[in-house]
Amino acid sequence: MAALPLPDSIKKQASSLKTVESFPVRRFFERFGEPLELELVAGEMGLQNRKIREKSINRPALALTGYYDYFAHKRLQLFGAGEMGYLRSLVRERQQKVLKEIVDHNIPCMVVSRGLRPTATMLDIAKEAKVPLFRTRMKSKDFSAEATILLEQELAPQTSLHGTLMDIKGVGTLLRGKSGVGKSECALALVERGHSLVADDFVSIRLVGDRELVGTGTELSRGYMECRGIGIINIGELFGVRSVRLEKRIDLVITFIDWHPGMHEERTGLERHYFEILDHKVSHVEIPVRPGRDMARLVEVAALVHALKRMGHDSAHAFNERLIAYMQEHSK
């Protein structure tokens, strides 16, 4: 006797996708200039208008030789020791021609690594074309790795959802439901039990690395929660700094729904349900709300069950297999 196949059910988020298509060079410099050790040496006039349109970093070695097929002009252009050595080997007229061809492709900016000094021609071209030229003391490999991570975060697809995001023993749990259903009250009870609040009421979500969804709150409301009947409360001040997290990967979505007689309720846990955010499926559980139910305890258990499933322990499947084995044995 075989178990029935497990159907997948998927619910999609109602919020619209926001794709960040570009990142102004000025904002890049202001936000990441210090961690990337950037120093602006020329082309300040182009800071506002130039935009980075891809998250990867480009090394323009082939472009310096005049080969522009597949030239990634939308990316930040990084000049390392090899590129700078080649430039210095050229006469001034050749340097001008090569660099002008590169900036004419509407590149966002140029960065010289290892603390190397840009050539005089490079400074003149950057100033004339209004292309920001930076210098960093970081090695090319380290700069590429750090800058790619930072740009990936900024250029990641984004959306927002109404809900409350919690960190429950390492499981990022997004609580959803209509206004007034009890999401914040449940989150408050979870915080009292030692779990952490990430965002209340409004959750900003971005897709990082095309593989995981990361949720966070706004800077204005971070650490605050609206509790009906009491008002706005500061979670960090009431329960300590460990009760608040800046961001968390979203592993599980739990939707609170109003209970009514005769409604379908999950009884076995054999069916897999998903909630789709930014075209990525996240495990989804619906919990009916009715008087007397300890919603915080149910949410906590749902998060722990999800954690066990990720480690390969599925109680529902294990019991189903035991039941089938029992039925097979006693049918003989």
Rank of each mutant, 00 (worst) to 15 (best):
L133F: 02
K169T: 07
T164L: 08
R50S: 04
E44R: 14
E128R: 14
Q158S: 14
L87A: 08
K97M: 11
S140M: 03
T136M: 03
I168P: 04
V181T: 04
P132Q: 05
E152R: 09
E44C: 04
L62A: 13
R59T: 05
D167R: 02
I125R: 02
I125M: 04
S89F: 08
D142V: 10
R75N: 07
T173S: 05
K74W: 11
L151S: 02
Q48M: 14
T119P: 08
L87Y: 05
A145Y: 15
A81T: 11
D104R: 13
R176I: 11
S179C: 08
V112I: 03
Y67A: 00
L99S: 03
G180V: 07
V98G: 00
R88T: 11
T136S: 02
L155W: 05
R75G: 03
L40A: 00
P132R: 07
G82Q: 05
I107C: 06
I52Y: 08
G43M: 05
R135A: 05
L62F: 13
I168R: 00
G115Y: 15
Y86M: 06
L150A: 05
I102A: 03
T173K: 07
K74Q: 10
R50F: 04
R94N: 01
G85L: 12
E154D: 11
K183T: 01
A63C: 09
L123V: 15
G115F: 10
E101F: 11
T173N: 06
A147G: 07
L47I: 12
F71K: 04
V131C: 11
L78V: 15
T148P: 02
E101Y: 13
L151W: 02
V112E: 01
K97Y: 10
S144G: 01
Q48W: 06
L151R: 06
L99F: 09
K169E: 13
N106V: 13
Q96N: 15
Y86F: 15
Y70N: 11
V112S: 04
N58C: 11
Q153D: 11
V98S: 09
R137F: 05
M122A: 04
K127Y: 10
H105Y: 14
L174V: 07
V91Y: 11
M84A: 07
V181K: 01
A42P: 04
A63K: 07
Y86E: 06
S179N: 12
S89C: 08
L155V: 06
Y68Q: 00
S113W: 02
V131M: 09
L47S: 00
P108W: 09
N106R: 14
Y68T: 01
K100V: 12
H73R: 14
E154M: 10
K74I: 10
V112D: 01
D142M: 08
Q96P: 00
L40N: 00
K127S: 15
K139W: 00
G115C: 07
T164S: 10
Q95T: 03
D104E: 15
E44G: 00
A72Y: 14
K139V: 06
P157K: 10
A81P: 08
P157H: 13
R75I: 07
L116P: 01
F79W: 09
K130I: 08
N106L: 13
Y70S: 13
A156Q: 10
P157I: 12
G82H: 15
L64N: 08
T121P: 02
Y86S: 08
Y70A: 12
R75S: 14
Q48D: 14
K97I: 09
V112A: 01
R59F: 05
E93W: 12
